[in-house]
Design a protein around this nucleic acid. Structure first.
Lengths: 343, 343
DNA sequence: TTGTACGCGTTATCAT
DNA sequence: ATGATAACGCGTACAA
């Protein structure tokens, strides 16, 4: 391995000067600079990132924490895919690397392990859920001054660095869209209440119904767990109340698709017999039949913004404030919410 | 930060002894060991991973290289999601971490950059394609003795460490299944020839047709690029030859679904008017209408095996041989390949 | 503008 | 069974 020392010798300067050239520090004679660069090139010298981390006492890594999920479904969601891409883009702009950390169930309570070993300077935490244990773990992180940012999850009452989307407004748009299409009897299939955006979506739904002077029937408020299967099963309940249902807003695309599958088995076709809007605007929305109207959530940008914010804190010492950033959502209309018998 | 020195002082031993305790090295008196562990616990000491990496001259990181894809689609494929999960599982078993590296277009030629900075000890390379530049880059890696493993891609004529699935057999199963269902006129929609498994699939298709004594019509050999859109567009061509088509085998699920969408617009329904089998057995296969028969590829296990192999090389110095591992595929039958008019 | 010298927290080798 | 000590490659304060 070629080290700084060899470059220094070849360029006839001190090792410190070599470092200064590579870090762009201090005033220096262009000629010296050139000599050093030439020597480095000739020797194919590249600074040792580990030694740099050691000396700087910074790893240059951003930890990305993924929640535990049973084996095969860990990364399968479009959700994580997009966020990871956004983080990756930002991280490279800042000269950082991403260290992936897949939590196991029993480790979910101890985030500090990641920092203790000094392998990451900060973390972006994905897919956390609102439980007492989680709150405690995160408060512990905060108390120790370890920088982190949550994506797509808020903890009411606590002040963390969070990047979220405006799910209230997104749901409002979705339900308003259904109303604009002429539907009055609109059901809502929500996901698990452990996610803050489930609450947000309920809020948006209620507001839209209220603003339109429509009644919210308790039997039209369903709850799944964001899986296709839970949407499929919700079709049972919805079918029982089919006289009171013209349209459905589902809290994600997978449940919306499961729901369409379940109702199709009973002869009810989305976009013909009823309307559906999903949430996430994932790939699946384009693949489904009929193509699914959905709320686009800027996951990519959310990941990018989270990485930007938390690294800014590390690099420029802006650790004090904990901004809460909320990015806008956007309705994407496809065939599932256009009723032909309506036109 | 608590260092080894403080632990040594508290336990009244030398720093070397503390290290030995934490690394489980050499014979030592249980009493000493206990004293050290107690002191470490009392001080909440944890070894500094960066200092360890520095001293050991190993980073403890496995690089995971992802190919360049335009912004939003980088991780979107089920494909990468599964492989990453498998790598993650194996890596943690070995006490390693995963360092994600998202290639940009202009960097695809220089993998050595990753190793030069010493931030990774080995790499798993995903989604590489067979081009002269790629071959050259990989050979360069190999020449420099840098350990790496390719997943789901082979380079004929070169001897790399590769983990692949048996796509020939998988395709054979798919086509045989269609034949068993009574279909004789079977088209094949392949993906980009830059992937070795495209060739494998063609081979499996040809063999199954040949074994069954069926003719392979050139106009029934189509090529897309693995996107839904390319499958959708292939429907045009297929429609022109609809008299000669009863069934289609597509080289991945997304194309298969696009194809079904395109033919549906012409009134041709999969599972009723024709049969389809896809490939990957992705989430989309369950979400599509009708649910898509597909070839299950053990991506998770492939990722795990790749990580296992390449880390074994690093840790136990088995760098000399370059095994080529091939994992089995499995046919999953759903509605898209069961023709009702056939029964 | 450049050089000197120390420190970073381990591992690993050699004594004892 | 344990201690002393030399690396490891770089950043950086201070000196010149």
């Amino acid at each position: 391995m070629v080290t700084r020392k060899e470059v220094a010798e070849l360029a006839r300067v001190s090792e410190a000067t070599v470092s200064r050239v590579f870090n762009g520090l201090g005033p220096m004679k262009p000629a010296t600079r050139e000599r050093v660069l030439a020597a480095a090139k000739q020797l194919d010298y590249h600074p040792n990132a580990i030694a740099q981390s050691f000396a700087r006492r910074r790893s240059g890594n951003l930890g990305v924490v993924l929640p535990y999920m049973p084996k095969v479904h860990l990364f399968s969601a479009y959700y994580f895919a997009e966020i990871l891409s956004g983080i990756g883009e930002q991280v490279r702009e800042q000269g950082y690397d991403m260290l992936l950390s897949l939590l196991k169930p029993d480790e979910s309570l101890d985030y500090t392990r990641l920092y203790r070993s000094q392998k990451v300077d900060a973390c972006v935490i994905l897919g956390s859920i609102d439980t007492p244990q989680q709150r405690q773990s995160l408060e512990q992180l905060q108390d120790q001054g370890l920088p982190f940012c949550l994506v797509n999850q808020r903890f009411e009452g606590l002040s963390f660095h969070e990047v979220d989307a405006d799910h209230v407004e997104g749901s409002y748009q979705a339900v308003r869209h259904l109303q604009d299409e002429g539907y009055r009897k609109i059901a809502f299939l929500n996901g698990s209440p452990h996610y803050s955006n489930s609450g947000d979506r309920l809020q948006g739904y209620m507001k839209a119904m209220c603003d339109a002077g429509l009644e919210v029937l308790p039997e039209l408020l369903l709850e799944g767990n964001y899986s296709r299967k839970s949407g499929y099963e919700a079709a049972d309940q919805l079918w029982e109340h089919r006289e009171q249902v013209e349209a459905i807003f589902a809290a994600n695309d997978r449940m919306a698709i499961g729901l369409m599958q379940g109702l199709r088995e009973r002869g009810w076709i989305a976009g013909r017999d009823f309307a559906v809007v999903g949430c996430d605007d994932s790939d699946a929305a384009k693949l489904s039949d009929p193509p699914l109207s959905s709320i686009n959530v800027p996951f990519y940008e959310m990941g990018k913004e989270a990485a930007r914010g938390v690294l800014a804190g590390v690099l420029h010492g802006e650790g004090a404030n904990n901004p809460r950033i909320k990015l806008p959502t956007r309705l994407v209309v496809r065939q599932s919410s256009k009723s032909s018998h309506n036109k």
